[in-house]
Design a protein around this nucleic acid. Sequence first.
DNA 1: GTCTATAATACGATAGAC
DNA 2: GTCTATCGTATTATAGAC
Lengths: 184, 184
Amino acid sequence: MRKSEKKERLLKAAKHLIYRQGFHQTTLADISQESGISLGNLYYYFKTKEEILSAVIENQTKKFQAFTADLEQEPDSKNRLLGFLDIVITARCNIANYGCPVGSLSQELSKKTETPLDDSLNLLKNYVDWASEQFRLMGKQDAIALGRQFIATLQGASLLANALNDPEVFVEQAERVKDWVDSL
Amino acid sequence: MRKSEKKERLLKAAKHLIYRQGFHQTTLADISQESGISLGNLYYYFKTKEEILSAVIENQTKKFQAFTADLEQEPDSKNRLLGFLDIVITARCNIANYGCPVGSLSQELSKKTETPLDDSLNLLKNYVDWASEQFRLMGKQDAIALGRQFIATLQGASLLANALNDPEVFVEQAERVKDWVDSL
DNA sequence: GTCTATAATACGATAGAC
DNA sequence: GTCTATCGTATTATAGAC
C-alpha cells in the first residue's frame, strides 16, 4: 500500500466517523480501528486531531467544487438549482440518520471554544454564494437573499428530517423548494 | 439560600453553558464555576451529567409550553404565527452567536452514540406540531407540511446566521417567512 | 448539605523498538 | 514507516471530613 493511500484511508475513516458521531465524539482510537491503521502510525500522517479535522474540511471543500463544477454542464441556472435539489434528495436516508454533513459539522464547530478554524465557516458560505450566483444569473434583484433562503431551507429540512428521523420529511420539504424555484 | 434555589442556579448555569458550548464541551467543573457551587456539592443535586442534560431538556419543554400558552392570547392563528416570528427575531444576536437553543442541542444529541434520550427529539417536534396546528386552524389542507416548512426555514435561518455570524441574515430570512405567512 | 481531596477512566499525544 | 507501550492530562464520579 502506498503512503498516500494510507493517508486517504485515514481521511475517509475520519470523514465517515465525524459525520456519524460528530468531531468531539470521534476518538483517534475510533479512526484507527475503522481504517485498520494503528494508533501510533496515525500520528505519522497527522500530527494532531485538529489536523485531521482540517483535512476533512478541506476534503469537503473539494467535494463542493467538484459538485458544482459537475452542475455547470447544465447551461440553464434554474435547472442547475433543480439539479442540485435532485441530487441532495437522493441522500435523504443519510440526512435523516445523520443530518447534512456540512451543516452539522458547521454547527458543531461554531461551538468550539478554541481556535475558530475559519475554513468551516466558509464551507456553508460557498454553498450560499453558489446558490446566490444562480439566482443572479436568473436576473433576480434579491439574488443574495434568495441564495440564503435556498440553502437555509435545505439546512432546516435536514435538521428536521434528522430530528424526526424521517427521510420523507426531507423529501417533502425539498420538493417544496423545487416548486418554489420553478415558480420564480 | 433554599435547597431548590441552588438546584435552579445549577440548572440555569448548565443551560447557559450548554447553549454556548454544547453539551459535550461543557464540563461539570464549568457548571460548578459558573453557578458558584462546588463540584462535590453538584452531585448532591444531580447524580450524573446526563441527569443535568435531562433537566435542561425538561426546562426547554416547559419554556416551549409557556411560550405558546402566551401566544394563545392572540385569537387569530395567523397572527400567532406572526407573533412567534416577532419574538424569535428579538433573539437575533444570540442566534447569530450560538444558534437556536433547541435546534443546536437537538442536532448534537442526534449524534449521541449512547441512549437516545427521546425527550430531545420531542422538543423540535413540539414546535412543529404547534405550527402545524396554527396552519390547520387557518383552514390549510397541507397544514402538517406547512408547519414543518415554517420551523425548518427558521432552523435553517438560525444555522446560517450562526455560520455566517450575522444576525441580519436571520432577520432577513425571518422577514421572508413573515411575508410568506401573510400571503397565505 | 457542603466541602476538599482523590479515585477511575478515557483520550490525545509521545517514546522507542523494529 | 509501523508498531506496542505508556505518559500526561482532563473529566466524571466518589469518599469522607465537617
